[in-house]
Design a protein around this nucleic acid. Structure first.
Lengths: 228, 228
DNA sequence: CGCACTGTTGACGGTCCTCAAAACCAGTGG
DNA sequence: CCACTGGTTTTGAGGACCGTCAACAGTGCG
């Protein structure tokens, strides 16, 4: 019985490439069988708040969400964006350590943590899924920290574009659902810097922008060269 | 049976304040009963390497270690320092995502992951300990990311000094076992900036330095005021 | 049209990185 | 004891990068 603590190869191959959906077989099943109706949330609405008692875990059905924390000086640190199939609130303690907010209109399904714990107690594979989803989140957090620690504005923006494109499966064209401010708070930059950097990337022909949120990746190779 | 997934209040109260030893009752016991002799590692020696198969979990008995990853451009990102009583390698996938290296001469005890998994399968409290230790590491990683994203050099250094003092239980005087370069790679700064910031803090009377690694916190209040 | 909001652009200044050199420290060997 | 060596730490000067302030453009909506 070593399954619970040892990750399956698939979920552990690569830091930031681990999507929560890679490790959802049992976890998805638990949601599917929970009989809970999906909840609609409008853009800007919160699903749960930092500091609230963490009674539920959520799965994104539709739309895009983001999770953030407010810092002491009133600034906001966006921790991650969450796409359909991914989970929210898994790695909370008794309280949520993050606020989860809808970026676009979205649909989420809730599952009680007590119920999930009961299920996990009888199902080693579910326990393993929970474990691997949490480990994935942890490793993504470290990738993020590494970017924030050392990369320049251009590198951060390029890394973000590529990473987001990969996550939504976009090859050339994509829609960025989040505002410039959201991107800035995710990348640890000022909104002006994000904007400037994007126009600069466009001037250099690495990307093309139909509108401010419609981006086409023109030179993926050169963008990748910017992400060491 | 909701114990495995729900954290006990003690372990979840505060992000960066969660020391691994807060959540070790069963986990420590597992190590104590493992009959494995402690391994000595000299300063600078590695306990495990990024990319290696993660077959063991370690507990620090003596000394200080640090974990880091190498970035694409050859830079090093120190993820954390590890004090006696804390665990290493818990949150690994099949491979370690970090390299663990001794900062000072140290003693660690190893425990096989397969063995730990076997124990955890029969012991809900142990499973909960594993969970809460991992969640703790995740939340510390996010605290760290927030600092890297937004704080100035002075704020980073002040936060580091206070956080390290708290972890080792120092009130006024403390010895920093790590080099300036280690601190710099942890804080996402150049070594020169760390050095300059420390001399500046000393000039302002917030700290006093007997030697470069012997620091006394003179004005804890003003240091804390620097950490928003 | 006016208004509110989001995004872009320019000018300027501060912070922190880079480059370079000096001071300090521990250990080694003459 | 002193000179020499390799390492770490400190200090200085200069400049790039990015945040701040300010103004302007674009968009959607009443």
């Amino acid at each position: 019985m070593n399954a619970a603590f040892t990750l399956p190869p698939a979920a552990a191959t690569a830091g930031s490439a681990v999507s929560a959906s890679d490790a959802c077989c049992r976890l998805c099943k638990a949601f599917a069988e929970s009989q809970t109706a999906a909840t609609r949330v409008g853009a800007g609405e919160e699903v749960f708040l930092e500091g609230e008692e963490a009674d539920f875990v959520y799965r994104v059905e539709e739309g895009v969400l983001m999770s953030y924390r407010m810092l002491g000086d009133g600034r906001r640190q966006v921790v991650d964006f969450h796409l359909p199939g991914e989970f929210l609130g898994l790695e909370a303690g008794v309280e949520y350590s993050l606020t989860a907010q809808a970026v676009t209109p979205a649909k989420v399904v809730a599952l009680g943590r007590r119920r999930l714990a009961t299920l996990a107690a009888d199902d080693v594979r579910l326990t393993r899924d929970l474990w691997s989803a949490t480990v994935g989140a942890y490793q993504r957090s470290q990738d993020h920290a590494a970017i924030l620690a050392r990369q320049s504005a251009t590198e951060r923006v390029a890394a973000f574009l590529l990473s987001y494109a990969r996550r939504i499966g976009a090859v050339r064209d994509m829609t960025l659902p989040m505002s410039r401010q959201d991107m800035a708070d995710f990348l640890g930059l000022a909104i002006h810097t994000v904007s400037r950097t994007l126009t600069h990337l466009e001037a250099d022909g690495l990307i093309a922008a139909r509108s401010s949120r419609q981006v086409r990746l023109m030179r993926r190779d050169r963008l990748m060269a910017l992400c060491p």
